[in-house]
Computed example of a mutant assay.
Amino acid sequence: MFTIAVQQQQYKTYILSDETAGSQLEVVPERGGIITRWRIQGQEIFYLDTERFANPDLSVRGGNPILFPICGNIPDNTYTHNGQQYTLKQHGFARDLPWEVTDQVTQDKVSLTLVLNSNEQTRAVYPFDFQVLFTYELQGNTLEIRQQYKNLSSRSLPFSTGFHPYFLTVDKAGLEFEIPSQKYQDQITKEIHPFNGNFDFSRDEIDVAFKQLTSQSASVTDNSRKLKLTLDYSNKYPILVFWTLKGKDFYCLEPWSAPRNSLNTGENLTVLEPGSSYTASVRLTADFF
């Protein structure tokens, strides 16, 4: 049985349930269209910093924030388009703006569709007209996120997009990684390192990008939680970013369509012609063992 309930918490929260599987998803449209929680049989999949979430002046640290129209940051938070300079903060504005629910499905599956349309606020920092549609679909132990990006401008629309899922963990030493790449770039030092499946979790921060991906699937096995997470992504995502902080009970494995600063460099940047659209999908599967 599939259901959608609406609760008025600090924000209006949509709770999607696959009751047969004991799987639940919580979505908060007005707080960046974010998935805040995903539970399977009462076990939390995502980490959520509830204090930051409660403060609308802070970006959310937890759940699955949406990255658009950039991934990462750009130098001095500025870029130039048609000779004019604009300010765009890290990861863009989609994760901070309210989204609207446009569709709900509870027949044979449970899904929620949200939309973000360009407006005066977005055009002040990103001078384009667009529409972004996300469908969150929950079935069993699988969460699928289907996306559609539409260029409503009379000129080309440049962007990158991605996700920043925070996965809950209690013992990073018990994590095993299967990432389809043999090297990564340290985003702090810019150095390239070979990857043998391990990270040095004694470091204060790990922030690395895998660019030469050899498949559309990666997984992390958390032996302390007896949980294997599999991330499947369409070929629109040629980059995986891994990020974590020492002393925090999370790690992030993030599919990105382009690297940092692509709005300035053009590297892997998606450019949509006027009136055209672009689709992508990401699927997360959580298996307890």
Rank of each mutant, 00 (worst) to 15 (best):
I4P: 05
Q8F: 04
T20Q: 13
G22C: 09
S23F: 10
Q24H: 09
G33E: 03
I35A: 08
Q41D: 11
F46V: 12
Y47C: 08
L48H: 09
R52A: 07
G62D: 14
N64H: 06
N64M: 15
I66C: 00
F68I: 06
I74K: 10
T80Q: 06
Q85E: 11
R95A: 07
D96G: 00
D96F: 07
E100D: 12
E100V: 10
V101P: 05
V110P: 04
S111N: 05
S118R: 02
N119V: 06
N119Q: 11
T122C: 06
A124S: 12
F130P: 09
Q131V: 06
V132S: 13
L133S: 14
E137K: 13
L143Q: 08
L143G: 01
E144V: 06
R146Q: 11
Q147D: 01
K150V: 09
N151Q: 09
L152Y: 03
L157P: 01
L157D: 13
T161F: 12
G162Q: 15
G162S: 15
F163K: 02
Y166E: 05
F167K: 07
F167Q: 10
L168F: 14
A173I: 00
I179H: 01
Q182S: 06
T189V: 11
I192R: 10
H193D: 04
H193G: 05
F195C: 00
F201C: 05
F201W: 12
S202I: 07
R203C: 13
D204Y: 08
D207A: 04
A209W: 00
T214G: 11
N223T: 05
K228H: 07
K228C: 07
L229W: 02
L231N: 08
S234T: 15
P238W: 11
V241L: 00
V241A: 09
F242L: 05
K248E: 03
K248H: 04
F250Q: 05
Y251M: 08
L253C: 10
R260N: 14
T265V: 08
G266Y: 10
E267M: 12
V271D: 03
Y278G: 03
V282L: 13
T285Q: 14
D287W: 09
